[in-house]
Design a protein around this nucleic acid. Structure first.
Length: 316
RNA sequence: GCAGGGGUGGUCGAGUGGUUAAUGGCACCGGGCUGUAAACCCGGCGGGUUCACACCCUACGUAGGUUCGAAUCCUACCCCCUGCA
């Protein structure tokens, strides 16, 4: 390509807050430019959890191939680092067939992991993790933080004791590798070549309308049988502490089924969870470099038309 | 109608004479984020001027009053809840 003077074909990415119409826009672009969708959503990777994930059902994908969706067993963990490797492989494959790769999803960390790879790190040691979790449950987050102060003072100083999620990760790194997280942070591999070709579109719908959609969508999930889906997943042995059942919708229904809240409060809390999440996504993408902001919803044909126009150079 | 209880900032709810623009929760807004990220964490939050210390204005149902000082006490009125009629 470069020797012919043509611009390298981009890897398109459609990101944005949840419920902003990313999937629809991704499919529209794929249809227009012979593309294939690569899921960039940390929950849609799981199979068997359906109703509250907003996955586009295969029948509605209009023939557009979707990758990295529906392939991880629900009780299993899956991480940003794994996704980055999988996505690199999948994108390479799509492009080798002469098609356009279109990343679609709202998980900012996943995209980050692709653009700026993490340091080499062994896979999650689930045994160690569960020991740390139970330690925290028994002795409190302060205790974990105190432990980290001994094992990695630099990271401990940077992290609040209440930020147990990161404290725990830092402990895992130190315990699994023998090296501190602070020592490893600098050692970041070079990004894959394709990262430089990313063309990043972030949807930005009117906030009030977005929230209204989120609320409506949560209610429709409950009407569609979300509670029954969760009941069945639990009955099948999917751990309630799994990432899949920690997803929005699922988390609160698990609490309801465990008698920790009413059904009504599960619905309301789910709406709040998702609204808060949408806001955090916006915060994330605001400082993500190279974002092209697209006002409106991705399922709006006018918005799709605008984004198509922005990619007119992809026309064959 | 009588007897009790109550009306507080977007909301729930503390506060019963003096650092009270008013504890706290929620909503909302903003920020952070290096392998659980739909996770986890932090901040702001009556309005106006100011880069800022600061200053001004408006606020605890309404209207008056007592007091150096009132969301807090008194009076009247309006509204809500409960019990008796």
């Amino acid at each position: 390509m470069s020797d012919t003077g043509h611009k390298a074909r981009p890897v398109v990415a459609v990101v944005g807050p949840t419920a902003s119409g990313k999937s629809e826009l991704g499919i529209a672009l794929a249809l227009r430019f012979q593309g294939e969708v690569v899921n960039c959503d940390s929950v849609q990777v799981y199979r068997e959890i359906e109703i509250a994930t907003a996955k586009v059902p295969p029948a509605e994908r209009r023939g557009v191939p979707h990758h990295l969706i529906d392939f991880v067993p629900p009780g299993t963990g899956y991480t940003a680092g794994e996704w980055a490797r999988d996505a690199t492989r999948v994108i390479t494959d799509i492009e080798s067939r002469g098609r356009l790769a279109i990343l679609v999803g709202g998980t900012g960390l996943y995209l980050r992991a692709l653009r700026e790879p993490f340091f080499e790190s062994p896979p999650t040691d689930t045994g160690l993790r569960s020991r740390l979790v139970s330690l925290r449950e028994r002795r409190g987050a302060e205790h974990l933080h105190a432990l980290l102060r001994r094992l990695d003072p630099e990271t401990a100083a940077r992290l609040s004791a209440r930020d147990w999620s990161r404290v725990q990760r830092a402990l895992e790194v130190r315990l699994q590798t023998g090296k501190t997280l602070s020592a490893q942070r600098a050692a970041r591999p070079a990004p894959p070549a394709l990262a430089a070709r990313l063309r990043l579109f972030c949807l930005n719908p009117p906030r009030a309308e977005l929230y209204a959609r989120i609320d409506a969508r949560a209610e429709s999930h409950f009407r569609a049988g979300l509670v029954e889906e969760v009941r069945a997943l639990l009955a099948r042995g999917v751990p309630e502490g799994s990432s899949a059942l920690g997803a929005h919708g699922y988390r609160r229904v698990v609490e309801y089924l465990r008698g920790k809240r009413t059904l009504e409060s599960a619905v309301e809390q789910t709406k709040l969870d998702v609204r808060h999440y949408a806001k955090r996504q916006l915060t994330w993408f605001r400082r993500e470099p190279g974002v092209e902001w697209v006002e409106g919803f991705g399922d709006d044909p006018r918005v799709q038309g605008r984004v198509v126009a922005l990619n007119s150079d992809l026309e064959l």
